[in-house]
Design a binder for these strands. Sequence first.
DNA 1: GTCTATGCAAAGAGTTTGCAGATGT
DNA 2: ACATCTGCAAACTCTTTGCATAGAC
Lengths: 137, 137
Amino acid sequence: MANLKYSRQRASIKEYLSSTMEHPTADTVYLHVKEEFPNISLGTVYRNLNLLADMGEAVKISTPDGGDRFDGRTEPHYHVVCRSCGKIFDLELDEEHIKSINELANRHFGGTIESHTTLFYGTCEECAGKKSEKGLK
Amino acid sequence: MANLKYSRQRASIKEYLSSTMEHPTADTVYLHVKEEFPNISLGTVYRNLNLLADMGEAVKISTPDGGDRFDGRTEPHYHVVCRSCGKIFDLELDEEHIKSINELANRHFGGTIESHTTLFYGTCEECAGKKSEKGLK
DNA sequence: GTCTATGCAAAGAGTTTGCAGATGT
DNA sequence: ACATCTGCAAACTCTTTGCATAGAC
């Protein structure tokens, strides 16, 4: 529908997304890409993140607290939010499992189910360690 | 920690949440409760929805598009977002299944996983029907 | 009487958008 | 040349918050 044109800014955003495991917010992406393009604007970052997400070249992760996060990994996988530090981690599950959940859901739903996103909540390894150091449970 | 006091407004909000299947936004809750309490303010609605969610008496659902939705059903269950009309539907899966997913995830994650939320995407029965009426695929 | 909840309005965070000029094809 | 993309700033949506008053216990 729309004709897509190359832009250095978009390329840089995409590259940053693929290179990091941090599941950055739009603002974090902005700050990083700003190092290469000091004049880039937050609006451009949002426009490109949404573009990439719409094209399936990035994933938008919605969390209950704060702004959306973005992920350059597009293969189906899950995420864990650490309740203590707020960081988001990748979680690998069988591709088989992910597919079978859609099928299972389809059997229980009147319409058609195409995909799903899952967000786990818990405590990451590092934060669990800190807690026990302090003698907290 | 905080001492909770009864309020008619909160009771009304909670009752509305339990009575509807619509997974309303804060604003929708506001409009409904406004019928009983014409002077209620949106701030009060937000304060109480967050209170209820913190107490585990309601569930906040984050979606990528638009504001959060609220659900008075607190037993573990999933949700389906219709890509066509945007409505959210409940999806029942085995309680066993839901628990086993947490266990499975725990085995693949360094820290500890306590819970998860899953949002399915697809087309609801009604929208699927409308599409075929128009001869669209 | 004391402490919490409310209504109101203002402020805050996150995100989108209109426009003139720069850039890609 | 022409369409798209950018930077900037203003606008917009959703949500939170400070304050004086009303209500619960």
